[in-house]
């Protein structure tokens, strides 16, 4: 059953990705990107990652779609006619894909409880979280407590990205928008 659900979601995601490849109207491309994110959120639920699905649905289908629409409104609505088909990108992509697939052959099979990822520290975290922190959501406990350092770094990265955006197009260069309130 799981395999079937995964396959159906995959088929839909591949179809979306191919449609993004073919479409030339950027509005459709951006909307399909939102659809892709929502489908991947569904897949995250079937993979037990509810927190991740939550984030992906809010970020991918919400914020990033809005940002891309904003960019589109500032730039152009249509992609130019694609240049002539050249086999080089396809060749590069096929070779990279083949190498990656060759790399997966040694991996433990999907969902195996004996794989190294499961037997190393994961069990420890699951065992110690209730004793150490008393927080039922293990993901939150690891995020904020055990790996607080990492999360601090990520927060700083998010902040830095905002500073970068503000420097590039933000309010520091105020000359271009005399009546900024009217953009509705």
């Amino acid at each position: 059953m799981d395999v079937l659900i995964n396959l159906v979601l995959f088929a839909m995601m591949v179809a979306t990705a191919l449609a993004i490849l073919r479409m030339r109207r950027l509005f459709a491309v951006v909307m399909l990107a939102g659809v892709f994110s929502l489908l991947s959120a569904l897949l995250f639920v079937t993979l037990d990652a509810v927190d991740v699905a939550f984030t992906e649905a809010a970020v991918g289908a919400g914020i990033s779609t809005v940002l891309m629409l904003g960019t589109m409104a500032l730039t152009s609505r249509e992609e130019k006619m694609p240049r002539k088909f050249s086999p080089l990108p396809l060749l590069v992509v096929c070779i990279t894909g083949a190498v990656l697939i060759y790399g997966t052959l040694d991996m433990p099979s999907f969902g195996s409880a004996q794989s190294p990822a499961q037997t190393h520290v994961a069990a420890q975290y699951l065992e110690r979280t209730p004793k150490d922190t008393g927080v039922p959501n293990v993901v939150t406990a690891i995020l904020a407590s055990y790996r607080g350092y990492d999360t601090f770094g990520e927060t700083v990265v998010v902040f830095t990205a905002a500073v970068g955006v503000l420097i590039l197009i933000g309010g520091f260069a105020r000359r271009r928008d005399p009546e900024e309130g009217d953009a509705d």
Partner: peptide, 8 residues
């Protein structure tokens, strides 16, 4: 803030 930057 990012939204403001784009929308402005």
């Amino acid at each position: 803030a990012i939204y403001y930057a784009f929308a402005s």
